[in-house]
Design a protein around this nucleic acid. Structure first.
Length: 678
RNA sequence: GGGGCUGUAGCUCAGUGGUUAGAGCAGGGGACUCAUAAUCCCUUGGUCGUCGGUUCAAGUCCGACCGGCCCUACCA
């Protein structure tokens, strides 16, 4: 019997669980249920990730304490998880005494190993809010190319990288005020000291090969940078014991939450933490998304190694969820919260659908509504459940035959696939497992068809034959239900009720059951009504719109999101404004720039022979052919800029955050090229 | 620019170098009526992205190119 500790990444206490999160928790839950079904000793550990600036900001905005916020979030998260049948053995919090203790222990080990160094860092400080600003909370003018309103760490326009302190006219996105540069002491962990160890460990089969390659090519080919793991207060988190006023960065204590949460489970179950985190006998499996791989594959093993904890046996890494081939989107309504899903649809559907899409590869997973409906309705209802529903009632009075009848080797075929299916589950190749199970299911209905129990029951002399046929069909169904049990615990339970047993072990699939009563058949799964999906998406959309327009003005209900994200710049004079020569221009030519990801090459006419060559970063939103002929507004006197593909002689004016959401400005009818805008 | 993944039927995908490349769904035709308008049978449909190479044999291995996705950046 293996002893296995399993974790999913800790969900951040900053927001509710949505269907994107569920990919990971369902993937993990299926794996854990599978291990338990195999008879292994397996515990599933998780917790809320509760520290960091974002939590403080939200608590502040809602006018309550951080503790209050995270308590409510934890409850909501656990309710959502439970709704999807995700069963944790312990669900803790990084803001727990247990977690704090392990933070101290691991920290002391890093100190003892002489891996901690101090360095003063110039960081922007929001005087109004009284906090240091993380890169993403600062925007300003790029110090290299002068583009305005750029993120705090790099420029979207010229790709330069810099520190937020180098920005010209920096603005805090929290308060809109101008932050000042302050120097603060930060603590760094020198993981480079474990370079050799990490180079070996990451390539030793613990990670999917794509991730191992990624780390090798991207991080381990050069000295690893020191990891900044402290933040000056105020910060919602744990204060560093030997560095008063400094707090551990949320990514230091988040993974330690795994251990803290395990400690809680140990306390509740009379177990020792050493047997789970410091034992060769225990496997540790982390399930995470590809976005957080380097925390789990570089820093985390470095911490564990230094502090003498077990290293992860395997890190299972999944991709992101897309809906209908596109990123989840609030405005399209595809950003569906777990609780919203549960209002409309059966969690089993999503469990099965994700299972058919998950493999051991790090790849994105698409939720396609039509595919979703068809998989549930034809695979689960049409093939699997149908087996029971079309035969159970014929033998509700007689029960199963006393002896398992000759079925032409069908049951043996079913039982024979068990180990192969189990291997696929073990490897995380759920899509393969589901495929194999459905191949079996495809053989079961023809058996029923060929033996036509509805004909047999018309002839009293064939009562035995009728009972036998149904015995076979129900045993095939039973085996399928066991194979599907990790994915569909609910179905396994209902199948168990029908058959009067607990389908709680994989081994049960190996031998048929006979000579027992059959309960009255009850519906086990409803078909999916596509309309419910539409309604769910529609409601998600509406709720998002309602949320986004929390500060309505007039009758328009426009959201304040945009203005908040990007506050109005410092005041200028009218002369300043007229330095910018805006002109109406007609796009007379538009070409793809195949090598460029964002750019379209435009020829703009200002009337007569006056033309400008402009590269515009609008490829993601506009096709060149749809642009030709239209009028736009351009900055005509911008200094030409040499780009890789040629010289750009101006800019066209557009709004929007980027991607598909770029909106060119057009003059009203009557404007002609060359006219000044002002 | 670099790295990774990927390209097989209308769609979603299988396919350890070895017969004539498969499944599910969708489409077409038929059957059945036990079952949640479920099921069963038959059937249409493919230059396996392109071009080279290795091999007795290539969807599969190698190289180049073309396309898609992801990550990342004057750094391999």
């Amino acid at each position: 019997m293996r002893q296995i500790l399993v974790t999913s990444a800790l969900p951040y206490a900053n927001g509710p669980i949505h269907i994107g999160h569920l990919v990971e928790y369902l993937q993990t839950d299926i794996w854990v249920r599978f291990q338990k079904l195999m008879g292994n000793r397996c515990i599933y550990i998780c917790a809320d990730d509760t520290h960091g600036t974002a939590i403080s900001l939200r608590a502040q905005k809602e006018g309550r304490s951080e503790e209050d916020l995270i308590a409510e979030m934890s409850e909501a998260h656990q309710r959502d998880f439970a709704g999807f049948g995700i069963e944790f053995d312990n669900y803790g919090s990084t803001n727990s005494e247990e977690s704090r203790q392990f933070c101290h222990e691991i920290w002391q080990s890093l100190r003892d190993a002489d891996m901690v160094v101090e360095q003063d860092i110039d960081q922007l400080f929001d005087v109004e809010k009284g906090v240091f600003l993380a890169d993403r909370f600062v925007r300003g003018t790029c110090p290299v190319c002068g583009s305005e309103d750029q993120p705090g760490d790099n420029c979207d326009k010229c790709n330069a990288t810099y520190s937020p302190a180098e920005l010209i006219n920096p603005v805090s996105t929290l308060s809109g005020s101008t932050p000042e540069v302050r120097s603060a002491k930060h603590l760094f962990v020198q993981i480079e000291k474990l370079h050799d160890f990490l180079a070996e460990w990451t390539q030793s089969g613990t990670l999917p090969s794509e991730s191992a390659n990624y780390l090798r090519n991207f991080f381990l080919n050069e000295p690893l940078r020191d990891w900044d793991i402290s933040r000056p207060g105020p910060y919602f988190g744990f204060e560093i014991p030997d560095s008063p006023g400094n707090y551990w960065y949320v990514w230091f204590d988040a993974p330690i939450g795994y251990i803290g949460s395990t400690q809680q489970w140990c306390d509740a179950n009379g177990e020792k933490i050493e047997d789970w985190w410091k034992s060769d006998q225990t496997e540790i499996h982390h399930f995470i998304g590809k976005d957080i791989q380097y925390f789990h594959t570089l820093f985390w093993p470095a911490m564990l190694k230094t502090a003498g904890f077990s290293l992860p046996t395997k890190v299972h890494i999944h991709g992101f969820l897309t809906v209908d081939g596109e990123k989840m989107s609030k405005s399209r309504g595809t950003f569906v919260q777990a609780s919203k899903y549960l209002e409309h649809l059966d969690p089993s559907y999503l469990r099965y659908y994700y299972a058919t899409r998950l493999s051991s590869k790090v790849e994105d997973l698409d939720l396609n509504p039509e595919e979703f409906v068809s998989k549930i309705n034809s695979d689960l209802v049409g093939k699997v459940v149908n087996l029971a529903s079309r035969t159970a009632k014929f033998i509700k009075d007689t029960g199963l035959s006393a002896e398992y009848p000759d079925d032409g080797g069908l049951f043996e075929t079913f039982a024979g696939r068990g180990s192969e299916i189990a291997e696929a589950y073990e490897a995380g190749d759920y899509s393969k497992a589901m495929r194999m199970i459905m191949e079996l299911a495809d053989q079961a209905n023809p058996y029923v068809e060929n033996n036509a129990p509805w004909e047999l029951r018309k002839d009293p002399d064939k009562a035995q034959e009728l009972q036998d046929v149904c015995t076979v069909a129900l045993n095939l169904f039973r085996t399928l239900a066991i194979y599907l049990a990790p994915v569909l615990p609910d179905l396994a339970e209902k199948a168990g009720e029908l058959l009067g047993e607990d389908l709680n072990s994989w081994e049960l699939a190996g031998a048929p059951v006979t000579g027992r009563p059959i309960a009255k058949f009850k519906h086990m799964m409803q078909r999916v009504d596509p309309k419910r999906i539409e309604v769910m998406i529609e409601e998600s959309k509406e709720e998002n719109e309602a949320e986004a327009s929390s500060a309505p003005t007039g009758d328009w209900d426009d959201s304040d999101e945009a203005i908040k994200a990007d506050p109005i710049a410092d005041e200028i004079s009218i002369d300043d404004f007229f330095k910018t020569d805006l002109r109406v221009a007609r796009i007379v030519g538009a070409n793809e720039v195949p090598e460029a990801r964002k750019l379209v090459q435009l020829t703009l006419s200002l009337g007569g022979d006056e033309t400008r060559n402009v590269f515009a970063g609008i490829k993601s939103a506009y096709q060149p052919e749809e642009l030709v002929g239209r009028l736009v507004v351009m900055v005509a006197n911008l200094a030409p800029r040499k780009m890789k593909f040629g010289v750009s002689e101006g800019m066209i004016v557009a709004s929007g955050p980027g991607g598909k959401d770029i909106f060119l400005l057009s003059p009203d009818d009557g404007a002609v090229p060359g006219q000044r805008v002002g």
